[in-house]
Structures are given as structure tokens and as C-alpha cells.
Design a protein around this nucleic acid. Structure first.
Lengths: 184, 184
DNA sequence: GTCTATATCAAGATAGAC
DNA sequence: GTCTATCTTGATATAGAC
């Protein structure tokens, strides 16, 4: 909840864009510096390494989802149906405007077997996503069933984002959201 | 159908393993050469560039799927139910023993927005997957519905592979196959 | 906080000996 | 077909001036 927009946050935002589109290893400190209107060396005043930028980028997105999307599951002023509709709407708003797909999903496949810290952060992000969905499903399904459905929806969403990114069409992605809603 | 195992194919097989686990950009010519018991420069006798190895790797896997898995949809000696069961069994046999997940799915997220030739090959692989599944579904569902279901299964499978790779558990992945079978 | 300059290393790729 | 040796480029990262 920082009031003042920090330079550190600006660097993270530009890095996230680049990591999603170019991939992590294929994004250089020069690419990041260029996007920020800085020179390569200046980035090291804000971050001590590229890996730190990578990990902070993952945490930044995870934090955004936790604050703005997963939190919907805890709203006491909404019915379950309203919760899932809002949840899906917010997820759509994010991914339909996120060039390059899902950072955490992308790096899950590219980096996670090489970098344990990245891997743990990515697992934590997906687990939180599952838990939030399961919470909304719990009044209608048993606990285990809720989690199984939630896991399936997360996987389906990631697969749909992959296809949307690859084919440049959001049509099938949007049907996933409708499907999730229909289960509540 | 080459009788003699070529050195070129050996290099491809080692490269595919490395690309899946380490990622494309993070795999160097030295990594590939080491895995083949060669020295870096020797690889260039077989391939003119790393990008050629990458593209040939994608085609190699695509060809394997077309020959051994997608072809099941054209079997005239099997019922639709037998086809889908065999299709899923062969898919499972592949991915349950494929450390690092699906090469084409991984590179879809890492490389495809940077390399058009890779992107086209990856799209072609997923389209062929969808077409094969849709062919098996066509006797039970309308053409459009068959393709919509097939696309959904492909996306769900890719998402499930992502989660299987990340969490190291095949439990949820296997349920996807059962689900596909239940639709025929 | 950003710059210039540089250190160090590893990348992709090529030439030519054996 | 594999090797040694080398070229060139670009990577991460650091030191110190402004």
C-alpha cells in the first residue's frame, strides 16, 4: 500500500512485461534498462541481481492476485454466485489485457526446474488460486471435491491462456470462465 | 523410418531432453555437446545453428505424435471408445515418462512470441492434436461441438502437464484422461 | 540515482588440422 | 566426423565519477 510509486516498482513492471513476452533467460539487463530509460548498470542500484528481479516479479504478480482476485473468496457481502462471477471477471480483466499470458505459468515451464526459489513461489501462487476457488465451491461440494474442481479449473485456465497466447484468440479462453461459473 | 540411427537424431534426442528441463535459451551448445559426448564445435557439423536444432526438435516430437498417437483416430479396426482409450493411454505413456513436461507447450510460452517458425510449428502440433480428438468425437457430437470439446481437452491436458511438472504429482493429470474417455 | 567504463565470463559460430 | 583454436558478441555484474 505504498503511496509513493517507487522506481523499484517501475523496474518490476517493465521486467514483468519483458519476461512474459521474451521469456526470462532471453530478457537481458540491457532489455530491462532500455524499457526503463536507464543504462544497464543503473539497475543494480535497485536490485542486486537479475534473479532478484525475477523473484520479485513473481511475488509482485502473486501479491496482485491475492489482493485483487483471491480476496473475492473472502467477501462476506456477496453470494457464492456473485463471488464466482466477480472472481472470473477480475481474472478475465487481467489476462485479456496481459500480453504474453501468465508470468507465473510461463516461468513454471521455463525456469522452475532450474531455480528452486522461483518454483516455490510459483507453487504458492497456484495453490492460493486453488484455495480461493475451493472456498467458493465449498458450500455446494464436499471439501475434497471442491479442491479437485478448483485444481481442474486452474489447470484448464492455464491451458486456455497458453492457447490464447499462441493463437491470438480469446474465444475459448472466455468459455472456461463461463464453465467455472456454471459450477456454482 | 530410417534403419540406421543417425548421429543427427541422437543430438536431437539429447537436445529435446535439455530444452524441456532447462528451457530453450538456457540450454547452450556446450550443454548439448556435453550430453552427446562431443565438443561444442562438432555439433555444427550436423546442424547449422541452435535455432535449427530447436525447430528440428519441435518437428521431431510433432512427427512422433502424428505417427504414434494422432494416427489412432484413423484406425478402422477400432470402435470410437477403443480409439479414445488407446489415444489417452499412448498420451499418458508419453507424458508420464517425459521429464520436463511437453516440449511444444514449454516452448509455446518461452519462445513462440520471439520466433515465428517455432510458433507455426507449435500451432500446427496443437491443431493436429485437436483434429485427431475431434475426429474420434465426430460420431457422437456435431462437428463444431467436437472441435470445441477437443480444443478444451488439449488445453486441459497442457494445463495438467504444467501442474504435474510443477508439483511432481501425476494424480490430477490422470483424471484428465479419464474425463476425455468419458465423453466418448 | 544515473552515468561511464570496465571486468569477467559464456554464448553462438567458424576455420582448419587430424 | 571430431578435434583445437579462435572470433565476435553479448551476458551479468562491479567500481567509481558526477
Amino acid at each position: 500500500m505504498a503511496v509513493k510509486k517507487t522506481s523499484r516498482e517501475e523496474i518490476l513492471k517493465e521486467s514483468i512485461k519483458l519476461f512474459k513476452i521474451r521469456g526470462y533467460y532471453n530478457t537481458s539487463m540491457v532489455n530491462i534498462a532500455d524499457a526503463c530509460g536507464l543504462i544497464k548498470g543503473s539497475i543494480y542500484h535497485h536490485f542486486k541481481s537479475k534473479d532478484e528481479i525475477g523473484l520479485e516479479s513473481l511475488k509482485y504478480i502473486h501479491n496482485y492476485f491475492a489482493e485483487h482476485i483471491y480476496s473475492v473468496a473472502d467477501r462476506v457481502d456477496l453470494s457464492d454466485k456473485e463471488k464466482i462471477v466477480l472472481f472470473v471477471k477480475k481474472t478475465d480483466d487481467y489476462f485479456l489485457h496481459s500480453e504474453g499470458g501468465c508470468l507465473l505459468g510461463n516461468l513454471a515451464l521455463e525456469v522452475s526446474s532450474e531455480n528452486l526459489a522461483f518454483k516455490e513461489e510459483i507453487k504458492s501462487y497456484f495453490s492460493a488460486w486453488e484455495n480461493a476457488l475451493a472456498k467458493i465451491l465449498k458450500n455446494k461440494y464436499a471439501n475434497e471435491k471442491s479442491h479437485a474442481l478448483a485444481r481442474e479449473f486452474v489447470a484448464l485456465t492455464q491451458g486456455a491462456i497458453m492457447m490464447m497466447t499462441l493463437y491470438g484468440s480469446s474465444e475459448d479462453y472466455l468459455k472456461v470462465g463461463e464453465k467455472i461459473i456454471s459450477f456454482v
